[in-house]
């Protein structure tokens, strides 16, 4: 048998090799975003013990300085204050400490096991733990190399969960925000509703409302403007096959009375699998919504297998 397919996937697929690839794909790297969840003890007494320990720990912690985190100052420019002092290279961020940059100032934080954070001017950041930081205002650029689902940035209007790799979050003084992803994926969550933003896409978030509908940054201005104004008819009219991601998010966000219009446009632009029915999507059948996601054929979405899927 010709081994070109085995070698570099050129030529006609070798059926056995293709079958093995499909069978083994779930074991591929970054398939296990849910691993930590799976290892969590589930017996009730463990939870009760954890609550008790947390209470004791809280009481003890109040008597001593807050713990250090893995984040260290790697570089800075201008006026940067950390915990009420001028920040210096090699200082370590403590849990709960406020990091504040002035005008025309910036700071770079690094944590060997997690990644790098660049904080822009007029920004305020606190680290809750190694994996959780809070951006109150300003601009944060994160390049993360820890496992998907581990590192999170909370903002006043949404929580950004890194699904591997690089993104920028801007938060206004009013608490609204904009997330732009340059590599990998980021999940944006707020009170049970969420948006998934791939490289090249962006998503606005508003205080009290949470993340909006993501869009690719190279999409038409007409679609972006319609999204900003919440004009569904114009969004549907301006959508192209490249905007399947935007329409997929709309499927679960619009009122039931508008869902049919969104699905019809989605099905007209995206090749929907044969086992997906219009009725199934309209009643928000989780499997059907999943299959619509599959139809987007987005690259590098292995994390999806371990995702919570709250719809």
């Amino acid at each position: 048998m010709n081994d070109d397919y085995l070698w570099d996937r050129s030529g006609p697929p070798d059926p056995e090799v293709a079958r093995l690839e499909e069978t083994l794909a779930p074991l591929r790297y970054r398939h296990r975003a849910g691993l930590v969840e799976a290892r969590r003890p589930r017996v009730w007494w463990a939870a009760a013990a954890a609550v008790l320990l947390a209470a004791v720990a809280t009481w003890q912690v109040s008597l001593r300085p807050s713990p250090v985190t893995a984040w260290q100052v790697a570089g800075l420019e201008g006026n940067v204050r950390l915990g009420g002092r001028n920040a210096e290279v090699s200082m370590t961020l403590r849990s709960g400490q406020l990091l504040r940059t002035g005008a025309d100032s910036q700071i770079t934080l690094q944590a060997d096991q997690f990644g790098q954070i660049d904080l822009g001017s007029d920004s305020e950041l606190r680290a809750a733990t190694d994996q959780h930081v809070l951006l109150d205002r300003g601009q944060l650029h994160a390049f993360i190399w820890s496992r998907p689902g581990v590192f999170q940035v909370a903002t006043p209007s949404a929580r950004a969960i890194d699904l591997g790799c690089e993104y920028t979050i801007q938060v206004t003084a009013a608490g609204d925000g904009l997330l732009r992803v340059s590599r990998g994926w980021v999940a944006f969550q707020y009170k049970g509703h969420e948006s998934f933003i791939p490289a090249g896409a962006a998503c606005v978030t508003r205080k009290q409302e949470g993340p909006g509908i993501p869009y690719f940054e190279d999409t038409s201005e007409a679609l972006r403007e319609a999204l900003r104004e919440g004009a569904l008819d114009r969004v549907l009219a301006a959508a192209t096959p490249h905007d399947g991601l935007t329409l997929w998010h709309l499927l679960t966000r619009v009122p039931a009375s508008d869902r049919a219009r969104v699905y019809d446009r989605f099905a007209a632009l995206v090749e929907v699998p044969s086992d997906v029915t219009r009725e199934g999507v309209l009643r928000l059948d989780a499997h059907m919504i999943d299959r619509c996601w599959d139809a987007l054929v987005l690259e590098n979405t292995e994390w999806w297998r371990g995702w919570e899927r709250k719809w």
Binding site: T23, P26, R39
Partner: peptide, 14 residues
Amino acid sequence: HGAPAAPEDAFMVL
């Protein structure tokens, strides 16, 4: 014991 979710066949082939 905490192995990733995968069909039995995947572990067998592995």
